[in-house]
């Protein structure tokens, strides 16, 4: 049972984490990011579409498909996030509203395009893509550790990619030139502007990175949860990752802990139901646990939050 909690917990936590990291890029750069929900869904759609279309040529069993899906999802998420970047950075739209615009657009466009593509390929107007199950693997050695060994059993290739992306993000945000400039944009964009940096460019890149990472998270969700892509991808996990980011105070390590907490609380709830032999409907009640706990914990920790100071402000050189 412990193994199952760990395995399932990790596979739920990882997509949340990568989306939350995307959010950290964007919001640390000063652009409010409510669009993660739409970006992950659209990314998942592009990834799934790419997998289905290339499946026609490579065969549906090809192990390459999952990597094609990943790459396409990241490209799709990034491309779609350019709408948010354009609206917020260039068109001076209110960032909260722009985020919701992107969500609405994604939720409308992806099922529409899915049925258009399905009609072209198969002739019937389904709004689902069958993408087949992902390969899974177990890390020898590590998986034998008691209690936490489950974390290393039947892992998705995505999980490795996401952990790598998280580590790289720590390096990018805190060690590189771009990271220094990005965080300056979120605290006081005028400082970067005065130092000769390009605030709008830095922010645009941050939003695009967020789109790519969210897309990756979305396609992972499509693979891990149902092995299909359907409009059910929009169940609000993007929003949940925003909550994790805020809870994690816009820093990667605490955010990772929050995501693991969400994942483990959720899988523990499921396993507890199975263990107690409760009917399936009772698991719904336990599923509220992570959300109720989040609210409760936020009551204690929210006061100490310090969001990026310049978040939500359109950069305007003449205002100072």
């Amino acid at each position: 049972m412990m193994d199952a909690i760990m395995t399932d917990g990790l596979s739920f936590a990882m997509p949340l984490l990568i989306m939350a990291i995307g959010g950290i890029y964007s919001e640390r750069a000063g652009v409010v990011m409510l669009a993660i929900e739409g970006l992950q869904g659209f990314g998942a759609f592009v990834g799934a579409a790419a997998a289905v279309i290339s499946g026609i040529y490579l065969g549906t069993e090809s192990p390459l498909l999952i990597f094609i899906a990943m790459a396409a999802a990241m490209a799709g998420g990034a491309a779609f996030s350019s709408i948010h970047a354009l609206l917020c950075v260039k068109f001076r739209a209110q960032q909260v509203i722009s985020g919701m615009v992107v969500n609405t657009l994604a939720m409308a466009l992806s099922p529409f395009l899915t049925s258009v593509i399905n009609r072209a390929i198969t002739g019937n107007e389904s709004n689902k893509f069958q993408i087949g199950p992902s390969v899974r693997f177990t890390v020898p050695g590590l998986s034998e550790i008691p209690l936490v060994g489950g974390l290393f059993k039947s892992m998705y290739p995505f999980e490795i990619v996401i952990i790598a992306a998280a580590l790289i993000s720590c390096y990018v945000l805190y060690k590189t030139r771009y990271g220094l400039r990005l965080r300056a944009c979120g605290e006081n964009p005028h400082s970067l502007d005065a130092a000769g940096g390009d605030v709008n460019r830095t922010r645009t890149i941050a939003v695009l990175i967020c789109g790519a990472l969210s897309g990756l998270g979305g396609v992972f969700l499509a693979y891990s949860i149902s092995a299909t892509y359907s409009p059910n991808i929009y169940v609000g996990y993007g929003y949940l990752s925003i909550a994790a980011m805020i809870f994690g105070n816009w820093k990667i390590p605490p955010t990772a802990c929050v995501c693991m907490f969400f994942g483990l609380a959720r899988s523990a709830g499921y396993q507890l139901c199975l263990y107690l032999g409760m009917p399936g409907s009772y698991s719904d009640l336990l599923l509220t646990l992570p959300y109720a706990l989040t609210l409760l914990l936020l009551v204690f920790f929210s006061k100490r939050n310090n969001p990026p100071r310049a978040m939500g402000e359109t950069f305007d050189r003449s205002r100072r």
């Binding site: 609000g236 909550a243 509220t288 609210l295 929210s302």
Partner: peptide, 13 residues
């Protein structure tokens, strides 16, 4: 100081 976006999402679930 809990952002309404977060709390309403939690309440939705």
């Amino acid at each position: 100081n809990i952002h309404e976006v977060v709390s309403t999402i939690m309440f939705n679930y």
